[in-house]
Amino acid sequence: MLMALVALIGLLVSLYLTLYKLGRIGTLACGTGGCETVQLSRWGDFLGLPVAVWGAGFYVLVLALCLAGLQDRFADSRGLARILLVITGWGVLFTGWLTYLELFVIHAVCRWCVGSAVMVVVLFGLAWWDWRTVTGGKWQVAGGNDGGR
């Protein structure tokens, strides 16, 4: 439940940054703050889309998986726990790369991006805890009767 709430807040932050990037919120100008510098740098886009859009997609996916996990059918699902661990782990790596760019390449820090990074790390921590709880810390991909559980 906590993961779903964090993912929802992260989604809202990503939507805010997406609207900002599209010029619908705030002032799009250079030199007026860290977020402007980061968003307007070439690293503000990834594979043709604003990074914030990728972030929104990430949070939507995590939120959907968390809500699925709340259904009886998927309660205690090892597969779901593994997927969440992998996705949030990837999120931590991607966020780490973005934070590196902010600190050492762009030389500007966007506080909204920092907030999002913290949420991704929290999501990973919760996913790790959940995975440990459900599987006992054993990565059983092949064999075993997962059966959606």
Binding site: M1, M3, C66, G69, L70, D72, A75, D76, S77, R78, L80, A81, L84, L126, A127, D130, T133, V134, T135, G136, K138, R149
Partner: peptide, 15 residues
């Protein structure tokens, strides 16, 4: 999410 230990493979019941 869920918090039932792996050894107790019983579906979690939520309030």
């Amino acid at each position: 999410m869920v918090n039932t230990p792996a050894k107790q493979r019983t579906p979690a019941r939520r309030d």
